[in-house]
Design a protein around this nucleic acid. Structure first.
Length: 642
RNA sequence: GCCCGGGUAGCUCAGUCGGUAGAGCAGCUCACUCGUAAUGAGCAGGUCAGGGGUUCGAAUCCCCUCUCGGGCUCCA
């Protein structure tokens, strides 16, 4: 037998037997075993030629087991406190677990129930109840769960797949049993650290037409220390929340008078947008894109042609009726407009690739419950591009596009990317050859890029494969940013053509591409990544000059005009209130540079420099030296080659 | 859309048993003129989200609507 890669000579009959023979050090926090590549309970029987790996609670597999066992204990606790409760499913999540219930008399969990349930869970953990596995027939299982309709529905699904199979159940003491594939921790005392977080509704099997269950979410880790670290992370996330920072920094808000999901940008926030957009426009022009503009409304016939009314109607704002009954829809996407621009004249292969670019504001009827700050809105501005190219050009164009996207994102100081290639889903349109061709082009483009990628089988749009770019932010959260989709369907719907060198009419490929995704969303992600301290080149106020007292006011004005002459954006404060208060205000406003000038500086032509994020200020810096530093640090980034 | 929890001054929030609205910050005025994260005093600021109901009396209890947050769901 091999244990953790080492030959083990002893003769043991089961995992538990094996652990009994190993040192305390080695078996500490072993929650399950990996036997010949399969995770099993510690009690599992062992053969002499098995290869065994001890799985500890703090490993990825071990943590998953801990969380899953926590879910069982949650269900057990709920059943103790709410007799007659029905329990449905209880899987693990990224940071913990949940379990879905239906309580008697349609009773709902309230926030205050959570602490009672959590206390009951701790009692069960203290009782050190073993998780005991039992394998039974489907008939016996039906009998066992006779009063648990959700369990019986799962059993019915299993029976459909294979009527002769046996299923495993796990018992904790005599009072609780759950249908479960396992494995589990040996006993409840292995559940060292968990917290119940929230309660919400969730449809049975995610189906809106099925009953809505009560879901309790919890987090769980191998140690209390890890849980506390995670809670600290949650606090940090809260501090970075763009909705909170947007309020504090006076960037934007959502007036109820306008409607949910529709933001207004205040002057400071709008300035940031302006810089983002201008930078983007300039770089697109340099990269061979052409700017276009399309209106916010279009007749229903356009969206019939594009297929949006067929496929996406639920996501569209309702139409307004004009004139002789024409229906005008607010645009949910920019592509149909761009199609018409392509089609406005006969296209030659010499015109391709044709890269159209627009900051296009679109309106989408997102369901009210899904709205979330600037990340999920009903009115958004996409930095949208549609690239039309010949089949021959597709691979190179994708590669070039990918490099351009990454170069732009890097210019915003973002570093940590990965890509995902989503392939053909089960329900899709188009023929095999097209899919194969497009997917292969995407794969080759990714191979030549310098970012890592994974394949998401069957996750593509129904009309095309796509590449999504993800960012991992400053505190490790993953955000989806750009998306690239290869589309042959829409060009076909609009009858797009180009004439090739041998005078044939061919259909162009089209690449849909949003780089920021939407300006609003990108704004939010940048805010969270930088915790509100955005790169200085985006800000309207880059430098705030504070005269210590009235006597330094003239010098402050002089410093300001020298800065302005060098293209820096400056605000001069007046010496109204105590310096400490004015400094604090500037810090709270997250101004990149605070310059304090007093009598000592007037004669020496110096400034005191307080840099954002620096531990301590620096005094007596020659003005020229500061201007050189600030000009460099606040300069608009240049793009790396792509 | 559905479930749970909220909505009180510009912001953050308190408001007991149903007895008629409060703080800090911000704003304004005055004084202070200051060397690196909150100077002091005063003033002003409210349809307690909106509507309906119960009650002698409602921020408080009930119903409806709007809206925000957390989830579910959806995402061409």
């Amino acid at each position: 037998m091999k244990v953790d890669g080492q030959r083990y000579e002893g003769s043991v009959s089961s995992g538990a037997d094996l652990l009994a023979h190993l040192s305390k050090e080695v078996i500490k926090d072993v929650v399950v075993l990996n036997v010949n590549g399969v995770l099993v309970d510690v009690s599992h029987a062992l053969d002499p030629d098995d290869e065994v790996e001890l799985i500890h609670a703090d490993s990825p597999d071990g943590l998953d087991i801990v969380r899953h066992s926590c879910a069982h204990v949650l269900a057990q606790a709920v059943l103790r406190l709410f007799p007659g409760a029905q329990y449905a499913v209880g899987p693990t999540t990224e940071d913990g677990f949940f379990y879905d219930f239906a309580l008697e008399n349609d009773r709902r969990f309230e926030a205050s129930d959570l602490s009672a349930v959590e206390a009951e869970m701790r009692r069960i953990v203290a009782e050190d109840q073993p998780f005991v596995r039992d394998v039974i027939t489907l008939d016996d299982a039906e009998e066992l769960f006779v009063s648990q309709p959700f369990k019986r529905e799962i059993l019915a699904t299993l029976r459909e797949a294979d009527a002769t199979q046996q299923v495993s159940v796990y018992r904790n003491s005599a009072e609780f049993v759950d249908l479960c594939r396992g494995p589990h921790v040996p006993s409840t005392r292995y559940l060292k650290s968990f917290r119940l977080q929230r309660v919400s509704g969730a449809y049975w099997r995610g189906d809106e037409s099925r009953p809505q269950l009560q879901r309790i979410y919890g987090i769980a880790f191998a140690t209390e220390k890890a849980t506390e670290a995670y809670l600290t992370f949650l606090e940090e996330s809260e501090k970075r929340d763009h909705r909170r920072l947007g309020q504090e920094l006076d960037w934007f808000h959502f007036p109820p008078e306008i409607g949910p999901g529709l933001a207004v940008f205040h002057p400071k926030g709008a300035y940031i947008r302006y810089r983002m957009e201008e930078f983007s426009r300039t770089k697109h022009l340099e990269a061979g894109y052409e700017l276009v503009w399309t209106p916010h409304l279009a007749k229903s016939t356009l969206y019939e042609t594009s297929g949006h009314l067929e496929w996406y109607k639920d996501g569209m704002y309702p139409p307004m009726e004009l004139d002789e009954g024409d229906l005008y829809y607010p645009k949910p996407m920019n592509c149909p407009g761009h199609m018409l621009i392509y089609r406005a004249q006969p296209r030659s292969y010499r015109d391709l690739p044709l890269r159209l670019f627009e900051f296009g504001t679109v309106y989408r009827y997102e369901r009210s419950g899904t709205l979330h700050g600037l990340l999920r809105v009903r009115g958004l501005t996409q930095d949208d591009s549609h690239i039309f190219c010949t089949p021959d050009q597709l691979k190179d164009e994708l590669g070039r596009l990918l490099r351009f996207v990454i170069a732009i994102l890097r210019a915003f100081g973002l570093e940590d990317f990965d890509a995902e290639l989503s392939t053909r889903p089960e329900k899709s349109v188009g023929n095999d050859a097209e899919w194969e061709f497009a997917t292969e082009a995407a794969r080759l483009a990714l191979d030549t890029s310098d970012i890592e990628y994974s394949i998401a089988e069957g996750e593509g749009a129904f009309y095309a494969p796509k590449i999504d770019i993800h960012l991992t932010d400053a505190i490790g959260r993953r955000w989806q940013l750009s998306t690239l989709q290869i589309d042959l369907q829409e060009p076909q719907r609009f009858g797009l053509e180009f004439q090739d060198a041998s005078n044939q009419k061919l259909r162009p490929y089209m690449i849909h591409r949003a780089l920021f995704g939407s300006v609003e969303r990108f704004f939010a992600i940048l805010t969270e990544h930088y915790a509100g301290a955005l790169p200085g080149w985006l800000l309207e106020e880059q430098i705030r000059i504070l005269p210590v007292a009235q006597e330094a006011q003239n010098w402050a004005d002089t410093v300001a005009s020298r800065c302005k002459a060098n293209g820096l954006r400056v605000v001069v404060g007046s010496a109204g209130e105590p310096l400490g208060g004015r400094i604090r205000k500037a810090k709270v406003d997250k101004v990149p540079y605070i310059l304090v000038v007093g009598n000592n500086d007037v004669a020496a032509e110096t400034v005191g420099v307080n840099r954002r994020g620096a531990a301590k200020e620096e005094r007596g810096i020659a003005l020229d030296v500061f201007i050189a530093e600030a000009t460099e640090a606040l300069r608009e980034p240049t793009l790396e080659a792509f």
